[in-house]
């Protein structure tokens, strides 16, 4: 396995693209954003009474945090679009299933008491 350990060697399977640093500015910005949203979660939990709307806000904030972790930290924003789509499109369907079953769960509750 020596051949691809040398810089400059081109190998199709172990192809390493040229990497360069984009600086740490975006990373720290993402950190403060994630921290801010988490603090906001904490505040909303105590300020707002429990309701469907509050759940919606929490899930929305979770998705925003996910966008920044996947986009900036995991660098998916800067990858080729077809790689991003392969990963994100199935997750959209899974999210649909989760939100659907959250809703259907309430219907199950009603049916159980009938």
């Amino acid at each position: 396995m020596e051949f691809y350990n040398k810089p400059g060697d081109y190998d199709a399977i172990n192809y390493i693209p040229h990497t360069e640093s984009h600086g740490t500015k975006e990373l720290w910005k993402t950190f403060w954003l994630l921290l801010g949203i988490t603090v906001l979660d904490f505040v909303i939990y105590f300020v707002m009474p429990a309701s469907g709307w509050r759940n919606f806000i929490f899930i929305f904030f979770g998705l925003v945090k996910a966008y920044y972790i996947v986009g900036a930290f995991m660098h998916l924003k800067h990858e080729k679009i077809n790689l991003a789509l392969v990963i994100l499109v199935p997750m959209v369907f899974v999210l649909g299933l989760i939100s659907g079953l959250l809703y259907e769960g309430s219907a199950l509750e009603v049916m159980k008491s009938m």
Partner: peptide, 10 residues
């Protein structure tokens, strides 16, 4: 013969 996603195999 090349990575269509422009990332390494790993």
């Amino acid at each position: 013969g090349r990575s269509p996603f422009n990332v390494s195999y790993g």
